[in-house]
Design a protein around this nucleic acid. Structure first.
Lengths: 229, 229, 229, 229
DNA sequence: AATGAATGAGCCTTCATTCAT
DNA sequence: GATGAATGAAGGCTCATTCAT
């Protein structure tokens, strides 16, 4: 540590960065605050308490920090204008989600994943407030894509399929970079595929699924109409 | 305690069950062996070391135990005969995978998920030896479905999409049952959908994606042929 | 420590003794559990947690322990039979209280005093349940001594005076024995007085006060009667 | 903060007041200097060391501060002239002592009590220099009251009895006001008695004791004279 | 003169493991 | 074979104090 007594924000920031990194890598319980301090550049352990009050509050702040960074880097609409065709907007959102997850400097999803695997309950509220609106955006464009005939259930299911495939990359991404000594098992050889090919596949695969679903919806409606006649 | 001195195997068994349950719920590090003993019916803490040598060895045994149970309950081919049409066999495997994950008495996937989130490295080998053959089976039938024109990369990607959607249910399943007081956030309202509708959707959505992929493959080949002419 | 793994009660007992001694000397917050362990004969710090769960629970148990010992050593009636004259019974209770406080092996009053000076709230209930009955006994015999003319307030005040003088010895007692290096100031030279002379004085002084109070009561009643006539 | 840079004495003063209040309430060890700063109106934690050098020195200053205030408010002779009858002067001193203790704005006795309960040794000298003269005054008038026949021991014992009953009110006083949530147990229902009735009782009770003691002295002397004859 | 930042010693607690019976 | 007792390493937190501005 440079023992810079003048700029508390600097220390705070570096602690936050270090915390996000380690919480993302190990989750809340497996993270030692002494490790955070080391990574942060040699801050004193008590500094965490001084700046954040407790390990738990640091955890929440670290997530907020990571989430804000992530949102700045990848606007959820993928840069597609609101008046673009629905398929383009859908593609935009899928790619935004995908790239946000794939970018190794984005730590919010990693932290969130660890939190889901080993819930501490500390992020419950804040994650809901942050993530739900994002999913709502995706749900909305999926609903528009499927058309008015689609039931709410069908919309939710399709959104789930898209989300699942993007989210799944989290597990693979980590295995590509951090494999230090005691390596976790590579779950799939698909991790060798290039990132663009992967993005391409996900978009195409899901659009196909969605179109099939749309056809299905239309058919159901026809049947119902016939049935009523 | 009601310890039956006559039957050490009984204690061993109940420890294994309890361990699988708690490791599945909390992962390795967050699991306290005193909790395992409590759930196991009041076994002494020292019993774990006595029977298994260490917490780590118990962990490995617990996974093996859970995996074997899971495989017995859900044969990976879904009960579809090897000479059935390829689409039927594919559907069989998808459903087998899906239902194995959805069955709350199956703990192997939960443990595996926790292990991927917070790797201990203890299951690396054994998981590879157990899981890789399963994925190979799915990859094989996907390859057959896509036809000979498909590249290996395309096969892997499609298998990933299928796997992702099934695996994703893990996160939702837990949220449906265990929401004790300090609840993690419901990631998606799709958790309200019935299990059969869910299975149906997954099969249909993925078959659509696969067929699209198959068409793509054929087209690519034609182009290549044309290009060569 | 004799590392006697066979007899947990032995360790528990010695911890309890040591805890009572040190809590009595320093109060809850100033007591280091490592000191308790040292005094207890070298027990491991974790042993406190093993046997009692926490420092706080040890504190409560230590008080209970000390109180029970104290009650066994000094029955509150001072050994005077219930059919003895009221003055004898009163003298018996005063002397019992006095000697209980003066006996340096009795630690309950010391702990209670520290608790009153720096309340932790941990002994609230248990002290009330233990001490209130004792005071009630003293109040009862004071009431009997003062006669039916005494108001409840007068009874309470007299009991307070008696109690105060006995209790005050706590402060002096400690100053007689423990004056290690950093000595607290001797509040009064009365500490030089022998214990029997002290007991004698207290009994006589208070009986005089009580008799005066009794006369007062009688006079008041007469006045009231006259006034009504 | 609204710190007035212009007036360091202001801060010093408010720190002293706050310190006296909290040291009186919690004693030395249980007092956090951050709490003192908070109560003091938001002073910086470092201000304590800046103005006083250390927590310990602040402690000593706080006691001196409180003691001086207390002496100004309650002159120890109770306002009775030196040429008044001895009983009046005795009554004056008892009431002065009693009211000094009962006044909740006087903190010196509270601090002294805490110091006696958990001695730090920091106030040894200063308390002796401050308090001993006071007790000497009381002892002197008691000696005069008892007459020349009284032994020094009897004088000391009577002074102790008086002192004890006044001092005992400390314990009750606190319980009347500060009972915040986690309340210490009410030691006696006598705490319900009004302050004037209390003062009245103490004076009367002790005068009775003293007179009895005086009679005793006279008798002893007679016996001794007879014995010598 | 005064303060925000930083520190390190000390404490309680947790927990897997080992020991002696 | 099995268990109650005991252990020690490690972690997070508190808090008075020191530093640099």
């Amino acid at each position: 540590m440079t023992t810079n007594r003048s700029d508390g924000m600097e220390t705070r920031r570096s602690l936050l960065d270090a915390a996000a990194t380690i919480f993302a890598a190990k989750g809340f319980h497996d993270t030692r605050i002494v490790d955070i301090c080391r990574v942060s550049g040699g801050a004193n352990m008590a500094a965490v308490n001084y700046h954040f009050g407790s390990k738990e509050k640091l955890y929440v702040e670290a997530w907020r920090h990571a989430f804000e960074r992530s949102m700045e880097a990848y606007p959820p609409d993928g840069g597609v204008l609101p008046n673009a065709p629905v398929e383009d907007r859908l593609r935009g959102q899928i790619l935004a989600l995908f790239h946000r997850i794939m970018d190794p400097t984005n730590l919010d999803f990693d932290i969130a994943h660890k939190e889901m695997a080993n819930p501490t309950g500390l992020l419950s509220e804040i994650m809901r407030r942050s993530i739900d609106p994002l999913r709502a955006m995706l749900v909305k464009v999926v609903r528009e894509f499927l058309g008015t005939h689609a039931t709410e259930e069908q919309v939710q299911l399709c959104e789930m399929s898209i989300h699942a495939q993007c989210f799944f990359q989290l597990l693979h991404r980590r295995q590509r970079k951090c494999t230090p000594a005691d390596s976790p098992p590579p779950v799939s050889p698909a991790s060798e595929v290039g990132i663009d090919a992967l993005a391409d596949h996900i978009v195409r695969f899901n659009l196909a699924g969605l179109r099939e679903c749309r056809r299905q919806c239309a058919k159901q409606v026809k049947c119902q109409i016939k049935g009523k006649e």
